[in-house]
Design a protein around this nucleic acid. Structure first.
Lengths: 205, 205
DNA sequence: CTTGAAAGCTAATCGGAATTAGCCTATAAT
DNA sequence: ATTATAGGCTAATTCCGATTAGCTTTCAAG
């Protein structure tokens, strides 16, 4: 990996652990293996490094959908996969979603960094909300909506059903971000959650 | 209010908006109406101000339960209130919970501050999780559990039911913290959420 | 009364962290 | 071969921000 990219990578790691203000350009340089002033050959200043990370992320989000073994841009196509959905498939979907968000290094670091910087300005707030609220709800809503139209799930309010599916996953994710020791407990709750979700919304009940 | 207390108050406001590292003792002093060095007559240093805020909070949390018009320390007693619970009561409970957490100035600032500092060390992580995950789930779990034993709600898994009740509220709270403009939208979702929750878990369904 | 602590102020001090200046080397293009 | 550029380094510079020193005032207790 070239220096310019490595700077972003190491900076992201540090920002996600300590927050922008507590990271010194020196720290970043040290990790990259160069001296601080050399950073300025690649980025105008510290803020520019942060901005570049944010920019880079926008261009990466198709990868996320792929990582979830779904197309991501075409829920109708994705729904094919779930044509014969049952509780175990649903649990797998939830687990995969959770495991991906929780463990993918880039995703995790980016999310933690945004958590720490979300109140800095409206743009960052918006990025956070889109990334971890609006987009997941919208995408999963389309997916779950298809399951409803296939009769696998039953509800007259898909958006709220989606909220019921996603909110516990989101909350447990934030728990694991701050207390990684609780991952096992969280995984167990996720599974129970989805099992219960399936009972509540599944056609058989 | 005496100076010592006002320092905590203004510091909390600033910390919650900009994060500890981006607040200068000068800023705090200015808001209090004194000069920075005078702060040191009241607190050993900047960190001590932060610590005092954390300490103060612990001693305040009974107030929270009271503010929710519940006893807080004795869910069995609280359950009396909900003996004749119906959907509208449940919506009110959810709305009150949400409105209190969202609008109570002290609670809100403290929560935002912790959001920004939660990764600093394990203690803070623990404080956050207890305050916004474990305790709410535990307390609401007891309450909802009583409703189950009274036959008003039906489930074989109260903790997960509680997760289903609380997680959406929590998630929407974090949305409003970062984008206050979305409060109206959030309130609407809360109401729909609880209505749906009642349909899913209510005895009539 | 007077005295000592509490709480404020101004003027240092002290250290740290971002950034700039200016120099060097390798290497790729002409 | 020459040269220009990319990317690295060391040594300032510059600014800022936390904290300390030391003085003053007020006021309550004795």
């Amino acid at each position: 990996m070239n220096t310019k990219q490595r700077i972003l990578d190491e900076a992201l790691t540090l920002f996600s652990e300590k927050g922008y203000a507590n990271v010194f350009v020196n720290d970043i340089a040290e990790r990259v293996g160069i001296k601080a002033p050399s950073l300025y050959k690649h980025y105008k200043n510290k803020q520019a490094i942060f901005d570049a990370i944010i920019d880079e992320m926008s261009s990466k989000f198709e990868q996320q959908a792929q990582a979830l073994s779904i197309n991501g841009t075409d829920p109708a196509a994705d729904a094919e996969v779930y044509r014969s959905m049952d509780e175990d498939h649903l649990i797998k979907l939830g687990n995969d979603l959770f495991a991906y968000f929780l463990h993918d290094s880039y995703t995790k670091r980016f999310r933690k960094m945004l958590t720490l910087e979300q109140f800095k300005d409206k743009d960052l707030a918006k990025v956070y909300s889109e990334q971890y609220f609006d987009r997941p709800l919208s995408y999963q809503g389309m997916l779950l909506g298809l399951l409803v139209s296939q009769g696998l799930l039953v509800t007259d309010n898909v958006p709220i059903m989606t909220l019921h599916f996603y909110a516990p996953i989101y909350m447990l994710l934030t728990v694991c971000d701050r207390e990684p020791d609780r991952e096992k407990e969280a995984l167990k709750l996720i599974e129970e959650h989805i099992r219960q979700f399936d009972k509540l919304y599944g056609r058989d009940y």
